[in-house]
């Protein structure tokens, strides 16, 4: 029973981590390898605002969200826009930015232990004989809510539809008067925003450490590749596949193997079914 419950929680966690990465890739075909760094950055800023500046929680959270979204947008409009379309350069450059942020933070004194955010709600509840923190339940609820909101945003609002159009055919979108660069900035900002939201929801469960950045990046990449890059349903399904696989291996093989599971999932997926669980034929041709 606890496998099912913790499986669901773990899957929701993974889905939250991967959401921003999928969003950016799905819209602007930009593999944002600074994703993990933005995640940690959000937590760090929020902590600074809370404990050093002394702002109330809601304000601190809102400001850190806005800041990270701005960083994401700026990253695109000042740096990545110059190497748009050279996919390898995009990976290397965004990875370099991520490294610079993370290692810069580490140098700036971000080391494990001292940096923690408080739970939104204290206490725990028994579900079918398993004790679960309220915060973890909140992760599942907020995760679902965020997916729903983003889905609504992409499919119902003007900006969202423009983004979707961009994802499907950039040139056609250009001829319809959609500014591709502005959309890419918007998608980067949105992706960074969801990374930051994920950070604020998930970080209270642990402490803010640099390693979390690398971990989140690996997990996001794993989920997106297994699900088929840029596919929403695929990403959520993949989050569940990997989430449960991890919980199962932790239960039966030991905690060391849970990251191995994600990496093996990537490699196996790319070898056996290069387009991912929900990828499309077109992407298959790009890959193989």
């Amino acid at each position: 029973m606890d496998i099912i419950i913790y499986g669901i929680i773990n899957s929701a966690t993974l889905a939250l981590m991967a959401l921003g990465f999928t969003l950016v890739y799905g819209v602007s075909r930009l593999p944002n390898f600074a994703h993990g760094a933005l995640y940690v950055l959000a937590g760090y800023i929020c902590w600074i605002l809370l404990h050093k500046v002394g702002l109330p929680y809601v304000l601190a959270a809102a400001l850190s969200l806005a800041f990270v979204a701005a960083v994401g947008g700026a990253m695109y409009s000042f740096i990545l826009v110059r190497i748009r379309g050279m996919s390898i350069s995009e990976i290397i450059a965004s990875y370099a930015i991520g490294l610079a942020i993370l290692e810069g933070l580490r140098w700036g004194g971000l080391k494990g232990g001292t940096f923690t955010l408080d739970y939104f709600v204290e206490g725990s509840v028994d579900i079918a004989g398993v004790s679960v923190d309220y915060q973890r339940i909140l992760v599942v609820i907020l995760g679902t809510l965020l997916v729903g909101l983003l889905y609504f945003f992409v499919n119902r609002t003007r900006l969202g539809l423009a983004l979707k159009g961009m994802a499907q055919d950039e040139r056609a979108a250009l001829t319809l008067g959609i500014d591709s660069d502005r959309m890419a900035v918007a998608s980067m900002a949105l992706g960074s925003l969801s990374a930051a939201v994920a950070a604020l929801i998930l970080l209270p469960l642990g402490s803010i450490v640099v390693e979390a950045g690398y971990h989140v990046l690996i997990m996001a990449v794993a989920v997106c590749i297994v699900g088929g890059l840029g596919s929403w349903t695929g990403a959520i399904l993949a989050a569940f596949v990997i989430g449960f696989a991890q919980i199962l291996t932790t239960a039966y093989l030991g905690a060391h193997f849970s990251v191995v599971v994600a990496l093996m999932a990537i490699i196996l997926t790319l070898i056996l079914r290069p387009s991912g669980l929900f990828g499309k034929q077109k992407e298959l041709e790009e890959r193989v």
Binding site: S87, V259, I267, P274, V288
Partner: peptide
């Protein structure tokens, strides 16, 4: 991984040393 192209080979090869 050899049949994979560009970005995909890059991502997988990034994972190997970690693994």
């Amino acid at each position: 991984c050899l049949p994979l192209r560009g970005v995909y080979f890059a991502i997988v090869s990034l994972m190997f040393p970690l693994l």
